[in-house]
Design a protein around this nucleic acid. Structure first.
Length: 312
DNA sequence: AAGTGGTCCAACCGCCAATCC
DNA sequence: TGGATTGGCGGTTGGACCACT
C-alpha cells in the first residue's frame, strides 16, 4: 500500500491558477500568514491541494519575486553556485533572494545548460585545433590551468570558512535568511508586502481582463506576464501605485526587503564567492555532465571581473 | 493562413526530512 | 518511541507561445 496522497484528489483542481484563486490565496495569507498550508484549502474554499497553494505562493505570489530577464550577473552567479552546490536550487535561490528555486531551475535547464554546452563544444573544437601545439606549449597551458584551479579551490575553501565562521561577514547574514525558512519571514514584511503583490495582480488583471481572458480558465500568467514591465520597474525601485488598493506599501516593501541595497551586496557576494572549488564536496553532487573545463568557465565567469567593477 | 517544431515556464509528482501526536 | 502528517525540494511534464516554412 502506497503512501496516501497529500490531499484528497477528488475535487481538487489542477492546472493554472486563475486570478480569482490568486486573490483568495493572497488575501488569506495576508490575514494569516504563510504556513499551515494544510488548512489553506479548507479555510479559503479553494479547490486546491495544500501543496499547490504553497507552491503558488512561494513561486509566484510571494512579495519581492523578480521574474524573467536574468541579468548577466545573476546568470554568472547561478553558474557559479551550481558549480559549487550542484542542483540544489533552493540553496542557490537563497543567494538570489528575488528569484525562486523554480525560476532558477527553469533558467538553468532552458538557458544555461545550453549556453554551457555551447561553450563546451567551443572548447572541444579549440582543443582539437590545439592538437598541433607543441608539447611544451601544452604543458605550459596545462600548468597555468592547474595553478588557476588550485587558486580557485583555495578561494572556495576560504569562502566556505568565512561562511561557516560564527563571525560571518555582514553580507552573509543579510543574504542568507531565506535558506529553508521561507515561511519564517517576519510577519509584518510578508503580509504587508503581499498587499502590493495583490494590488499588482488586480491591476494587471483589470488591464488585461478583456484582452485575452475568454474562459474561466484564463490564468494569471497572462496578466502577470503583462505586468512584467511594471513589475521590473517596481523592483528597480519605482513603486507601482495600485489602482485598486488604497494601501500603498511599496515603500515599506522596498525598505523591508532592501532590494536596491541587495544589488550592491550582491556584487560583494560575487566577489566573495570563489569559483568552482570543492566546496561541500562530501554532500554536493554537482551535475558533472554539465560541468565545463574550469578554465573555460573561469574565462566566462571571471571576464566579468572587469565589468563587475561598475554598478551591479 | 495553416502547419510544424522548438522553446519556455508554471505547475505537478514523488521522495525525503522534519515535526507532530 | 514510532507512526502519521506536513512542508520542502528537485525532477519532470503539459501546454501556451513563437518562429519558421
Amino acid at each position: 500500500m502506497g503512501r496516501p496522497p497529500c490531499c484528497d484528489k477528488i475535487g481538487v483542481k489542477k492546472g493554472p491558477w486563475t486570478p480569482e484563486e490568486d486573490i483568495i490565496l493572497v488575501t488569506y495569507i495576508q490575514e494569516h500568514g504563510p504556513g499551515n498550508w494544510r488548512a489553506v484549502p479548507t479555510k479559503t474554499g479553494l479547490l486546491r491541494c495544500s501543496k499547490s497553494c504553497r507552491l503558488r505562493w512561494t513561486n509566484y505570489l510571494k512579495p519581492g519575486i523578480k521574474r524573467g530577464n536574468f541579468t548577466e550577473q545573476e546568470e554568472k552567479m547561478i553558474v557559479h553556485l551550481q558549480a559549487l552546490l550542484g542542483n540544489r536550487w533552493a540553496a542557490i535561490a537563497s543567494y538570489l533572494p528575488q528569484r525562486t528555486d523554480n525560476d532558477i531551475k527553469n533558467y538553468w535547464n532552458t538557458h544555461l545548460k545550453k549556453k554551457l554546452k555551447k561553450l563546451q563544444t567551443g572548447f572541444e573544437d579549440h582543443t582539437r585545433e590545439g592538437l598541433s601545439l607543441t608539447t611544451t606549449q601544452q604543458s605550459i597551458s596545462r600548468g597555468q590551468w592547474e595553478r588557476t584551479l588550485q587558486t580557485d579551490i583555495h578561494m572556495a575553501r576560504q569562502a566556505l570558512c568565512e561562511a561557516l565562521s560564527p563571525e560571518k561577514p555582514n553580507w552573509l547574514t543579510e543574504l542568507k535568511p531565506s535558506v529553508g525558512n521561507n515561511s519564517k519571514q517576519t510577519p509584518t514584511s510578508t503580509y504587508a508586502s503581499s498587499t502590493e503583490n495583490i494590488a499588482k495582480l488586480l491591476k494587471g488583471w483589470m488591464r488585461n481582463g478583456s484582452k485575452k481572458s475568454q474562459t474561466s480558465s484564463t490564468t494569471t500568467q497572462n496578466s502577470l506576464a503583462n505586468m512584467q514591465g511594471a513589475d521590473s520597474a517596481s523592483s528597480e525601485g519605482t513603486p507601482i501605485k495600485a489602482d485598486n488598493s488604497s494601501i500603498n506599501l511599496s515603500d515599506t516593501f522596498n525598505s523591508l526587503f532592501g532590494f536596491e541595497s541587495f544589488a550592491s551586496s550582491n556584487s560583494d557576494l560575487c566577489q566573495s564567492m570563489s569559483p568552482d572549488g570543492g566546496l561541500f564536496q562530501d554532500e554536493s553532487k554537482p551535475d558533472c555532465s554539465a560541468q565545463l573545463p574550469l578554465s573555460l568557465l573561469e574565462k566566462w565567469l571571471l571576464d566579468d571581473g572587469i565589468t563587475q567593477e561598475g554598478p551591479f
